[in-house]
Design a protein around this nucleic acid. Structure first.
Length: 188
DNA sequence: ACCCCGATCGTA
DNA sequence: ACGATCGGGGTT
């Protein structure tokens, strides 16, 4: 390799100031790993930025709490597609929930984003998937977006692993035996 | 066409 | 502890 080609492959000064967005290979990992490693990651959506502080894993046909437990439907179809896509659905007729699809294409799984520490105005702590989507303006209109390709909807890796606790998932009636909720312990 | 329920939230 | 509010999914 010539010194010129080596140098041209390095990030520019301005690029090195910001981390590179998380790509396909990250989201293709097993869902529990992605759930843990998303704690401390930065969600960017338009003008909004926030540190992810709480996640839950929903994993495949054998997870009774997973929307895809009974197969593919119009609503959950994106869960069967490529890792890194957004899965956003309406819940209780009035709130939206943001998920990121994980694992190999065809294996339905996703990480629900439940908590966000906003670093842009109003710099509030958003605890709860519905509040988070309401504040950011995320709706079903933003379903099935490819977060590894979108210009203003993506994730930046956590600078370091965040200490966290592991608990059962919230708001479900089946699958409560699984410790698939991950909540970062303050300070973030 | 009908019915029940839900990965929530705010108030009581 | 409970009501708001409506789309999704299964059943008739």
């Amino acid at each position: 390799m010539t010194s010129h080609s080596f140098l041209s492959s390095l990030p520019s000064a301005s690029e090195s100031l910001a981390s590179e967005k998380l790509g396909r290979d990250f989201f293709r990992q097993d869902t529990l790993t992605v759930s843990r490693e998303l704690l401390g990651a930065t969600l960017v959506f338009g003008p909004h930025r926030g540190i992810i502080t709480e996640t839950e894993a929903y994993i495949g046909r054998d997870d009774p709490a997973c929307h895809a437990a009974r197969g593919r439907t119009k609503r959950n179809a994106v869960m069967f597609e490529q890792a890194g896509l957004s899965y956003i659905y309406l819940i209780y007729g009035m709130y939206h929930c943001l998920n990121i699809v994980t694992e190999e294409e065809g294996f339905p799984a996703a990480v629900l984003i439940r908590g966000l520490h906003l670093t842009t105005p109003p710099q509030s702590h958003l605890d709860g998937p519905g509040k988070l989507c309401r504040e950011l303006g995320l709706t079903r209109e933003h379903n099935a977006r490819d977060l590894t390709e979108e210009k203003d909807f993506y994730l930046l890796p956590a600078p370091s692993p965040l200490p966290h606790v592991t608990t059962p998932r919230i708001g479900i009636s089946q699958g409560t035996d699984k410790l698939w909720r991950f909540a970062a312990t303050p300070p973030y």
